[in-house]
Design a protein around this nucleic acid. Sequence first.
DNA 1: TGTTAAGCGAGACGGTACGTCGCGTCTTAAT
DNA 2: ATTAAGACGCGACGTACCGTCTCGCTTAACA
Lengths: 187, 187, 187, 187
Amino acid sequence: MPRPLSTEARDKAIAAAQEVIAIDGLEGFTVDAVAKRSGVAKTTIYRHFSSGNELLVDAIDCMVMPFPTPNTGSLRGDIEAFLEAVVPVIDEHSMRRTMLGIMSAAASDPELARVHQEMMRQRMTPIRTILELAQGRGELQPDVDLDLALDFVEGPFFFRKMVRQQPLNEAEIHQIAELIVGGLLAR
Amino acid sequence: MPRPLSTEARDKAIAAAQEVIAIDGLEGFTVDAVAKRSGVAKTTIYRHFSSGNELLVDAIDCMVMPFPTPNTGSLRGDIEAFLEAVVPVIDEHSMRRTMLGIMSAAASDPELARVHQEMMRQRMTPIRTILELAQGRGELQPDVDLDLALDFVEGPFFFRKMVRQQPLNEAEIHQIAELIVGGLLAR
Amino acid sequence: MPRPLSTEARDKAIAAAQEVIAIDGLEGFTVDAVAKRSGVAKTTIYRHFSSGNELLVDAIDCMVMPFPTPNTGSLRGDIEAFLEAVVPVIDEHSMRRTMLGIMSAAASDPELARVHQEMMRQRMTPIRTILELAQGRGELQPDVDLDLALDFVEGPFFFRKMVRQQPLNEAEIHQIAELIVGGLLAR
Amino acid sequence: MPRPLSTEARDKAIAAAQEVIAIDGLEGFTVDAVAKRSGVAKTTIYRHFSSGNELLVDAIDCMVMPFPTPNTGSLRGDIEAFLEAVVPVIDEHSMRRTMLGIMSAAASDPELARVHQEMMRQRMTPIRTILELAQGRGELQPDVDLDLALDFVEGPFFFRKMVRQQPLNEAEIHQIAELIVGGLLAR
DNA sequence: TGTTAAGCGAGACGGTACGTCGCGTCTTAAT
DNA sequence: ATTAAGACGCGACGTACCGTCTCGCTTAACA
């Protein structure tokens, strides 16, 4: 008999949350702020999201930009293409800030951690595909543990941008790619 | 002429801050809590640290965990030894939580960013030394950009533990080390 | 549409404020103390009263102590009866302290001044009535300015108790009353 | 060999205190403010004055404007002259605010109360003289209790200005004087 | 096709932490 | 040994968000 939770309210909340994050950053993210900006009542927000954190997560979850899955015919070409496509995204400061915020929060909040895992899994699908294609072509040994290889491909890049928060020019991307491919093919 | 800011108060505050972080985690970190635990008045804390965040930063800055600089005679041996030594530190949940918190906060707070840079620089000295030794031995080509190599060595590991927040057993460490060394020596 | 400010919270706050004033005096009056004693959150107190001072004012405003309006049939009897009734009230130290506090604060805070005016007006109604009755009986000349007469009747007493803060025994009350009545009837 | 407490520091403190009171009013009066304005260290202030309140009192004590002691040859003339001289002083808002502040504080602080008593005693000397002169001339009965008469003369005026905080024009001053004299001579 | 329970906006509520201010004491250097 | 300067412990200030609650109202599903 009762009215169901309206998608409209949920959508408005998430949209407002994304705006707030974009404008004020993660530290300016506030349930009150989202409520005010969205026109959705706090009560309603808490009806849809069990906590402010969950709203945050869901908002960010919806920001996911699907990464490209290049297919150049060679492992090295694919990896270079992938990294070149991803760099500008990560180079955006608000993006970096947001992702780090999630990673940090995920370390404390199990629910958020779950979402974060899922996000990561999704984000890494292109790499996995690239590696599988390389195995299919015989370029990459079939006994390479793809899960570890993922870390090996994404890691240096993430470390540079997110952890050390240092710039990375195109020449350096190529060198990194070279090292990665060298490692993978050395097997 | 006036009494200088007492090191004692500062030290007590930082010690208490570290305790608070250890016990309650970053999200339980509170100037009030530190004041209560340290016996140092909140006012005094703000005399020493311009904000709660700065206290946090300084406290973490003092948590320096000097990583070992192994010297086994081979690049591969050194890298494996290093990773094996570091894993248990990062495996501690509170440590991970704290480091992620800093990384996240550093993306918003320039002052914190500075401290974070310095921490990272320090933290990576062992790897740099390992690589330099390998170059000295002729194991590693002299034209390898060491700064990039740092990302290449640390990256996969950090990505696994901090970003994906997945376990990493000893066998996997060996495989990762193998890939890394393969990449470095392929040059 | 929203829930209206609850009278309950306001009332509890004011009651607690009055208790605090009674127990600790005006200088012990603190928003925190009121919050603690009342169980009303400080935030809520500030929702109802724009400042601690306003809470104070309102609390005092509610402390109305209605003075008696004697009717003994003679001006002198009425005045003596009134003064005798009022002395014990003013003799209470906390009462004196509080009233002086208000008077003092009223000199700086317009809002408080308004309340104070109203309190005084109310407090002096009995005297005005006494004087009007005396005029009705023909005891007091009709051309006596009642507003000035109020000062004349209340003044000596207040001056003694509040300004000079000296004791006043019953014999002295009678002498004062005699002087006052003498002055009023001399016309 | 020790240097005695310097009068200079004391004087500078009091001067600055008076300035602070004049500029910011009683509520802006602060030991820190006085220290800053005077260049006298807080320590020194506390060496000269046992509390901020005492400094306040002493500062105000030095503001005392000696009231005139008219001698017109008649009680009525003297009283009128006195009141007319005093009204403009009390009409100054800062003066009123300050005096009320002292009265209020005196109700809580015994030391301050003592000073206040002394101030009042001093302030009322002219009236006492006026009354004594009237007794000497035989105008006023010798059995009138002068202490009570003081209240009788000053009270209405103070009540009007300080307690009710209402204006008082010249005509009203005359009427009040008339009532007072009437009361005193009715004996 | 009403009825009615729930959704909804608005925002009050009890909390906790924030960063600031004034207090009165204590410490240091300089005179 | 007094002074200027100001650090110190303390405790109140008024504010911001938190997550919960209470209001009227509106609306969709069932009867």
